[in-house]
Design a protein around this nucleic acid. Structure first.
Length: 357
DNA sequence: CAAGCGTGGAG
DNA sequence: TCTCCAAGCTT
C-alpha cells in the first residue's frame, strides 16, 4: 500500500492541477525546437525519433533522423530495403539492434497496418522494439492520445518533485507507475490536449532543468513545490552502478559492426578475428599513401602499422583501426562475431561477413 | 528480473 | 583524464 507515494501530501492543497499549468507554461516558452515536435510531424517521424532516442542524446539523433526522413519518409520505404541498409544508415548512434527492430517494425506496419503507424498503445506495443515507454510516447506525441508517458526524465522529476528523493529507484516500480497516472491531468473536453502537453513538458523539464547530474533548480518553474528541495536535497540512497566499457563485449561488437558498416563488400571472417591486437604507438591508422593492398593479419608488413585486408577503402580505415586496438585472435573476438551473427546484425556468406541482406 | 546491449558529449 | 549517463527493450 504505497499510499504515501501514490498520494503525496506535498501536492495539497493545490493538487497536481497547480503543477500542470506552470509546467506546461514553462514548456511553451522553453521547449527545444525539435523537428519531430513540429506541426508538420508525422507518426512515422515520431516513431523513428523515439527509436533513435532510446538511450541516445538528442543532439546525436538530429542529423541521422533528418537523413532517415529524407530517405524513408514512409514506413514502406524502409520496409522495402534490406535490413543492412537500416544498419548502415544508423551510423554510430549505438545499439544497432534498434535499427534492426525499427526495420522489422516498418515491415510489420506495412503487412498488418496498411503502411500506417498504428495509434493505439496495444498495437504499438506489439511491434518489435516498442516497449511500454515508446508505445505511450508515440500514441501521445504523434496521435494526441492521453497516455501516461513515463521515461527516465519523467521518473526523475516525479521522484524529486513529489517523492522528495534525489533519484528514482533503480528499477521502475508499480508505485511509480501509479503515481505517474495520478499526476496526469484529467482528460477533459479538450480531448486530452493538456495530458499530452503534460507528458512532453515534464519530460522536457527533466531533460533541460531537472537533470540527473547538476539540476538547474534556479530555472525550475515548480521549485517552490519541490519535495526534494523542501527536504534539503538529500543525497541518493543508493549508488547507481556504472556501465563498464573497456574490454567488454559491447566494445568489441561495436568495433566489429563499425568495420562491417564501413565495408561495401563482405569481410573475410579471418580478418575480423585476427586484425592486430594493438596499434603501435605513434602508428598512423593509414600509411600516407593509403592502403597498399598488402593484406595481413599479424602486422607483418611492419611493426609500426596495423594491417587490414586488401582493398580496404580509406574511409574504412578508422573502423579497422578501432578494431585493431582490441585484443585479437582470442575467444572474445570469436564469441562477439558469433553473437552479431546470431542477433541478425551480421550475415555470413561464402565471401565473408557483411551486414544482413 | 538483472544483465546485456553502443556511443560520444559533458562535467 | 576518467566517470557518468542519455526519450529503453529484450531475454
Amino acid at each position: 500500500m504505497p499510499r504515501s507515494l501514490a498520494s503525496p501530501p506535498q501536492l495539497r492543497p493545490d493538487g497536481a492541477a497547480g503543477l500542470h499549468g506552470r509546467v506546461t507554461a514553462w514548456y511553451a516558452s522553453n521547449a527545444r525546437d525539435l523537428p519531430w515536435r513540429a506541426p508538420d510531424r508525422t507518426p512515422w517521424g515520431v516513431m523513428v525519433s523515439e527509436f533513435m532516442l532510446q538511450q541516445t542524446p538528442v543532439v546525436r539523433v538530429l542529423p541521422v533522423w533528418r537523413e532517415w526522413m529524407e530517405r524513408w519518409p514512409e514506413p514502406a520505404g524502409l520496409a522495402a530495403e534490406p535490413a543492412g541498409e537500416a544498419l548502415r544508415a544508423w551510423g554510430r548512434l549505438g545499439y544497432p539492434r534498434r535499427a534492426l527492430r525499427l526495420h522489422a517494425a516498418a515491415q510489420r506496419i506495412v503487412e498488418n497496418h496498411g503502411g500506417r503507424v498504428p495509434a493505439s498503445h496495444g498495437d504499438l506495443l506489439a511491434l518489435p522494439g516498442v516497449g511500454g515507454y515508446t508505445a505511450a510516447a508515440i500514441s501521445s506525441f504523434a496521435f494526441g492520445n492521453p497516455e501516461t508517458v513515463v521515461d527516465t526524465n519523467i521518473r526523475r522529476v516525479h521522484a524529486r518533485l513529489v517523492g522528495g528523493s534525489a533519484l528514482p529507484e533503480p528499477a521502475y516500480t508499480a508505485a511509480e507507475a501509479r503515481r505517474a497516472a495520478e499526476l496526469m491531468p484529467d482528460p477533459g473536453p479538450d480531448g486530452g490536449a493538456l495530458a499530452n502537453a503534460w507528458n512532453a513538458a515534464v519530460m522536457e523539464l527533466g531533460a533541460l532543468v531537472c537533470t540527473a547530474r547538476a539540476p538547474r533548480c534556479g530555472e525550475c518553474p515548480v521549485l517552490d513545490a519541490c519535495a526534494w528541495v523542501a527536504a534539503g536535497r538529500p543525497e541518493p540512497h543508493y549508488v547507481p552502478k556504472g556501465q563498464a566499457w573497456a574490454g567488454t563485449d559491447r566494445q568489441v561488437r561495436g568495433a566489429l559492426m563499425g568495420v562491417l558498416r564501413a565495408s561495401d563488400d563482405p569481410v573475410p571472417r579471418d580478418a575480423l578475428l585476427s586484425v592486430p591486437g594493438a596499434v603501435p604507438a605513434g602508428g598512423s591508422p593509414l600509411p600516407p599513401g593509403g592502403p597498399d593492398g598488402s593484406a595481413g593479419r599479424d602486422g607483418s608488413t611492419g611493426p609500426d602499422r596495423p594491417s587490414w585486408p586488401a582493398g580496404t577503402s580509406p574511409e574504412a580505415a578508422p573502423a579497422w583501426a578501432r578494431l585493431a586496438e582490441l585484443p585479437a585472435g582470442g575467444e572474445q573476438r570469436r564469441r562477439c562475431l558469433e553473437g552479431l551473427l546470431a542477433d541478425g546484425l551480421a550475415h555470413e556468406g561464402p565471401a565473408g561477413v557483411a551486414l544482413p541482406h
